[in-house]
Design a protein around this nucleic acid. Structure first.
Length: 494
RNA sequence: GCUCGUGUAGUGUAGUGGUCCAUCAUGAAGCCCUCUCGAGGCUUCGACCCGGGUUCAAAUCCCGGCACGAGCACCA
């Protein structure tokens, strides 16, 4: 090796490349990406990947992101009128900025329809009146159907019957002529537009014929000048179908990259339409129910958008199907929020203990940091004059404990005998709270499909609505409401 | 069945022929801390799917298996 490749002897520790890989064929300032959700609900954790990756690449290459609402199906996945603005909000929360361009497919129907006419006119598309079932049989045997042989004149007149409503749902479809002998059956004369007479929440009953995703998306990407498409690998065949269409039109297909499926352990398999149903059935309180994997639910609990972004960028863009734990996201979140979260004590299942000074001189006041490393300036003052404190029932199982930041005690029934103010041994340190500064609180914890409610008392010092605090030895929680007699906390994570 | 894709520690991720007895994070275990079992610091554990081939040299290239996943909707 010394002779053949001497420099290989100078070993160095490798370092991990961070951030996203380079986009191929990307010219700074010219990159146009897109994120295309169906507005049938707000954005979920899964969508966050698309939003993050696209907006991050746009940032790196000084490019643009098109937010495109793919709302061309009012039957199987009917759009929700409010979801358009929900999605815009969610996008802004996650990226910190608005999309550069926003388009709604339903507003651009004339464009799609005119390209459909062009396709029929130029003979690379046809109106097919075969049933889906029959066509599948023919396609599986690489056989052409009768409709394929029609002249463009006849196709155009059939098209008019589709458009004016004479032909009803299921009677005809427009197909793109590819090649019935293509090895991949999915690509053979694929359907581009179909008849849908259902009411559309945005444009009503204006259109009888609607494009399918592969057609609409292909046309719109071209119209917007999209240079790079990043999509799920389940859409690989879409790329191939659309490339065939682009060839007919004489266009050049954008660079395309794919990601694999992501499953978050804790959330199982959720679909937007599934969630919608559950919400309608009152099994969840709304789209921001803390058990749901929607961005609004996560935001409500106190997840930080930067942490979310870091998480998705760390996963990167790979075609592997992955299964990650919420814990990973939580750890990204902790590192973002910890230095911003003040500490407070929350004692669950509180048990009252009366302190016995035991002839030791004890202070009447304790001054505690708001943050252990003083990342947040300021402190909390605890008055312990009346000697009545609360400790968690579970912590009283041990008879000798240390009250954090205060004293070693021995517990005898409901009495706590102070043994020393200094820490003298390795006994466990527990959190506690003087009764005089405590206030009743409940902590709501989403746990899978359940909601766990924990009752306790919280340190009632500068408690502010919507703040996220770290409950010492418990975890992070958001203060959701403050009433005269009770404070409501929503669990974030440990 | 046809077509396509992916396989690096428990989970993710870096790595494109020698700088690799393999990176980083997370996790688990343990330790430290004038004091959090969930903050902070530190230590340890743990992986190239299998089998051939090419080469002085393979996680990396080639071939063949195997496993897993996806598409084949008038859904997106």
């Amino acid at each position: 090796m010394e002779n053949t490749n001497p420099e290989a002897l100078n070993r160095q520790k490798q370092i991990k490349r961070t951030g996203l890989k380079d986009l191929s064929n990307a010219v700074s300032g010219k990159v146009i990406l897109r994120f295309a959700p169906n507005p049938n609900g707000p954005l979920t954790l899964g969508h966050a990947r698309g939003v993050t990756i696209n907006s991050e690449y746009a940032k790196i290459y000084d490019g643009k992101v098109v937010l495109r609402f793919d709302d061309t199906d009012s039957k199987v996945k009917p759009p929700i009128k409010e979801a358009y603005s929900w999605i815009e909000e969610d996008y802004k929360w996650l990226t910190g900025k608005n999309p550069d361009i926003i388009v709604r497919a339903s507003e651009r129907m004339e464009i799609y329809l005119s390209y459909a006419v062009k396709m029929l006119d130029e003979g690379f598309g046809y109106v097919c009146k075969c049933s889906a079932e029959n066509f599948k049989k023919l396609r599986d045997n690489s056989e052409e159907c009768q409709c394929r042989k029609k002249e463009s004149k006849e196709n155009l007149s059939d098209w008019n019957e589709m458009v004016n409503g004479k032909l009803t749902e299921g009677m005809a479809v427009v197909r793109v002529k590819t090649d019935m002998n293509l090895p991949n059956p999915a690509l053979r004369d694929w359907p581009a537009l179909r008849i849908q007479h259902s009411h559309h929440p945005m444009v009503g009953d204006k259109y009888k014929v609607w494009p399918l995703l592969d057609f609409q998306s292909a046309i719109e990407d071209h119209e917007q000048g999209v240079t790079h498409i990043i999509r799920g690998k389940d859409l690989m065949d879409s790329t191939r179908k659309q490339t065939l269409l682009y060839n007919h039109f004489g266009w050049e297909y954008p660079e395309t990259m794919y990601w694999g499926r992501v499953k978050i352990h804790e959330f199982g398999s959720f679909s937007t339409s599934g969630m919608r149903k559950e919400i309608e059935n009152k099994n969840y309180s709304g789209w921001d129910d803390p058990r749901l994997p929607t961005l609004r639910a996560l935001r409500r609990r106190g997840f930080d958008s930067e942490a979310m972004k870091d998480f998705w960028i760390d996963l990167g863009l790979t075609q592997k199907d992955i299964s990650v734990s919420l814990q990973t996201i939580e750890s990204f979140n902790s590192s973002k929020i910890d230095s911003k979260c003040e500490r407070r004590v929350f004692v669950r299942d509180p048990k009252k203990i009366i302190l016995n000074a035991n002839n030791i001189e004890i202070p009447i006041k304790l001054i505690l940091n708001k943050h252990p490393l003083n990342k947040i300036k300021g402190n909390r003052e605890w008055n312990i004059e009346d000697l009545e404190i609360y400790v968690e029932e579970k912590d009283l199982e041990k008879k000798e404990i240390r009250l954090k930041d205060f004293a070693d005690i021995e517990v005898r029934k409901s009495e706590g005998i102070i043994q020393s103010l200094d820490r003298n041994d390795k006994r466990s340190i527990v959190h506690w709270i003087p009764k005089s500064i405590s206030k009743k609180a409940i902590l709501t914890i989403p746990n899978g499909n359940e909601i766990i409610i924990q009752e306790g008392v919280i340190e009632d010092i500068q408690i502010m609505k919507n703040n996220i605090v770290q409950l010492e030895r418990v975890g992070y929680a958001k203060i959701e409401s403050i009433d005269d007699d009770i404070i409501k906390l929503l669990w974030l994570h440990g």
